[in-house]
Design a protein around this nucleic acid. Structure first.
Lengths: 344, 344
DNA sequence: TTGAAAGCGCTAACAT
DNA sequence: ATGTTAGCGCTTTCAA
């Protein structure tokens, strides 16, 4: 069949038997030499190494994986790689994977459960040894308890799944963002949250509520809005806040994208940030620092989160038992130009 | 060895022989039934399907790949996944890959040739059937002519390599961006380009020069600056342009990030965009539309580029011979708020 | 220290 | 239409 022919490796690619023949030993010895087994003479090892050099031999991963029953590959399930925040998580995950001797496959789900299922099946085919899940949703395929040890969630907790998660303390983050505003002297503070079905959104809101409470400030329901983690949500909800008889003087946004949208709405209304209204974002995406004004935000260290999650997964696959519930990575408040004391 | 044990599949995972036994046929028949071969009775096919359903059987990809001598995996070599533009290319590539029955592995090089070599070796191990290269640099490992048919470059041409490339017409893009400025009435137009070692940068400059020439405008060397595709380059070079005795009234930037940096420098100098100076970017990254002012830019359709590149690669791997040199994807000028007619 | 041989799970030629 | 069988290229007992 033509496809098989064309995908077949180049004719001359050497196999382990070739190396064995050239070095004048058996394949078993070549395999041992390559694996660095101590039970091989220095001289034999050298002869094998020479044959490998001469031929440019590289072990065949398929054969090796079939024999070893491990692919040394991890699949990262991500809702949208084009999201810079997800991409940064992926970056950290890839780094940690390479360090642990794994390669990473990406599975973009585009929020489509069917695509997630397709990718999840990779775990069953043996093509990947484990999966990192960014969406907060566990594909049906992976619900078998036996698969649990092969999964780790990042950023978003997968509720009632028993899958460990690597995340920041979203509630504390929301609290700190709001405290910052309160510390600046704001008393009428709004909140625009992201998607409600996530676990991060209610936690950030809770932190906001905590900070208000500890400062003796009333929580005014009309100042709390939700939508999605997007620029349009920021624009729309901020416009709604601005239309209030008594608009807030500061708003804690559930993401930097929401914050950017909110700032646009404020500018469109002829007002200034932070002069008229202060804005705090969340995530500290790449563009947060470049925006006008530069965003004050909670830094959610995407790369470290990805890194830590992959390390945890690699450990679990290696049979080490680490933290059952997952790990919490520190966040930090980054104060830039979008917040200031209220006027007057 | 403990790692082998822990990575081993769950005890109960069925193999094809199990299905054969349950369905009361041979493995060959199961294989045929699963492959949809016409030489299987409808009744047999049904029995096999039932056994598969009952057991939750999934074929083992390692065994299949070893036998077929194809991994159905593609590695995408990318300098930096966290770069939103690269991420968008990756997104398109992943979509096309899935459509063609491939899975995609990411290889982040972080601009490090050693890491690129490591990833490139994947092709030799048989773990991947082909590679998409985003960096413009060909790892030594891949220089063998026999590997050529397994490679496709995206965005950046790999000079003198014979590797087909999927890109836009950068020169035409630069020309159109500059013509737009000229059409607005600007006569003193600067250019801040990205990295000079790339092929895109000189091409975009050439387009700029073309447009100037066709309008009878002199090319003033002091108005042309280079750096990297980054915000700092935009800020620094724009500041230098502003310090000129007679600064330009418009600047064509080699990327949106450069444009954003340039706008910051202009604002810092107490001037306005587009009132005092017009700015055109390049790429149309996600944040281009959200910036203040929204960027006029050349849209380089990252996702389509990735998509087209992966399609081309899949075709080549399938033995189809398509365009030897690669394919050119259309760009477009997006006019937003960062450009206007010059004052006075 | 090294070699012979079994077998990982599958597909496909060959035989029936 | 179905079964038997030979590998794909490797690692790892088991023997020597």
């Amino acid at each position: 069949m033509s496809r098989a022919r064309s995908l077949a490796p180049e004719a001359g690619r050497p196999r382990m038997t070739d190396i064995a023949r050239i070095a004048g030993v058996s394949v078993a010895t070549v395999s041992r030499a390559l694996a660095g087994s101590p039970r091989v003479t220095e001289e034999t090892r050298e002869r094998v190494a020479a044959a490998v050099r001469d031929t440019g031999y590289v072990v065949n991963r398929m054969a090796r994986s079939l024999r070893l029953q491990e692919a040394r590959q991890i699949l990262v399930l991500v809702p949208n790689i084009a999201n810079p925040f997800h991409a940064a998580v992926l970056l950290g995950a890839e780094e940690a994977a390479v360090a642990a001797g794994f390669h990473v496959l990406i599975g973009n789900t585009a929020g489509d459960p069917a695509r997630a299922e397709d990718h999840a099946r990779q775990l069953l085919t043996g093509a990947v040894d484990g999966m990192l899940i960014l969406g907060g949703a566990l594909p049906e395929t992976l619900k078998a308890p036996a698969l649990r040890r092969r999964l780790v969630a990042v950023i978003e907790r997968i509720v009632t799944s028993g899958v460990p998660v690597v995340e920041i303390d979203n509630q504390a983050g929301g609290r700190e963002a709001t405290r910052h505003l309160i510390g600046l002297g704001h008393r009428r503070i709004g909140h625009i949250g992201g998607s409600l079905p996530t676990t991060a959104t209610p936690k950030r809101f809770q932190g906001y509520a905590d900070a208000l409470a500890e400062a003796g400030l009333a929580l005014e329901p009309e100042l709390v809005r939700y939508g999605t983690f997007s620029i349009p949500t920021g624009t729309e909800q901020m416009a709604a806040l601005l239309a209030l008889p008594q608009p807030p003087t500061a708003v804690f946004c559930g993401s930097d994208e929401i914050a950017i949208g909110a700032i646009r709405a404020i500018k469109q209304a002829g007002l200034q940030v932070p002069d008229d209204i202060s804005i705090v974002g969340f995530d500290n995406i790449y563009f947060a620092a470049a925006y006008d004004p530069p965003l004050t935000t909670i830094d959610q260290p995407a790369r470290q989160l990805g890194h830590a999650a992959m390390r945890l997964l690699a450990d679990r696959l290696a049979g080490l038992d680490g933290p059952k519930r997952g790990v919490t990575v520190p966040y930090s408040l980054i104060i830039r130009g979008s917040t200031a004391a209220p006027k007057g």
